[in-house]
Design a protein around this nucleic acid. Structure first.
Length: 192
DNA sequence: ATGAAGATGAAT
DNA sequence: TTCATCTTCATC
């Protein structure tokens, strides 16, 4: 059985609403630590909740660049959150990575998180950045080169994807796009 | 210079 | 449900 294909930057040059569900079940490694993506959220630039909605600023500049790059931002003054930039350059749309099922580098993740329970390592956007060691230093890095390694979901086992409203969003949004691996114990929250 | 809000997480 | 914590950005 062939090793799953690496995701090219071209993979992200599509609508966020197409990329987001395709990322569920894919593998995200950072410096050889990570696991299966089980939860994401799509942020289109026309969405009032998107960081790019109000135009370009120093913080969100990477979102306005070409697809296939990492957009990292500080959340609530404490946590880091990781996004993948999508769509054509200038679209300023991205997918937020919200949760992983840890498969590789468990010890490194436990050390960084100060926890043992695998379900608590990457079950949230801030948690997974802490577990993988992703910080603002990695903002703007390409996703098809080290330290990133992204592998496509194996097509023979179609992931059952759940769809629901996003987390922590109060602004009115036309598209409540949260995608998750149905029944996964590694989600940041249950769907429903 | 100042202040309010925020794509969270952990404890209560 | 509360709060820690601090950057970002708009406003003064």
């Amino acid at each position: 059985m062939p090793r799953p294909a690496r995701l090219s930057r071209n993979f992200f040059a599509r609508s966020v609403h197409a990329v987001a569900p395709d990322l569920v079940g894919a593998t995200l490694l950072f410096d050889r630590v990570g696991g299966i993506i089980v939860e994401v959220e799509a942020y289109h630039h026309t969405d009032p909740a998107a960081h790019s909605y109000g135009g370009q600023t120093p913080r969100n500049a990477v979102m306005f660049g070409p697809p296939g790059y990492a957009y990292v931002y500080r959340s609530y003054g404490i946590h880091w959150c990781l996004n993948f930039v999508c769509e054509a350059e200038g679209s300023a749309s991205a997918v937020l990575i919200r949760a992983l099922g840890p498969t590789e580098g468990l010890e490194a993740m436990r050390r960084r998180r100060g926890l043992d329970d695998p379900r608590a390592l990457c079950s949230g956007p801030g948690k997974l950045c802490q577990a993988l060691g992703v910080t603002i230093m990695h903002n703007g890095l390409p996703l098809d080169r080290a330290p990133f390694e992204l592998r496509a979901r194996s097509s023979d086992v179609p992931a059952e994807t759940a769809i629901g409203p996003r987390i922590g969003i109060t602004k009115a949004a036309e598209h409540p796009w949260r995608y998750g691996l149905k029944g996964s114990p590694f989600l940041s929250r249950r769907f429903g």
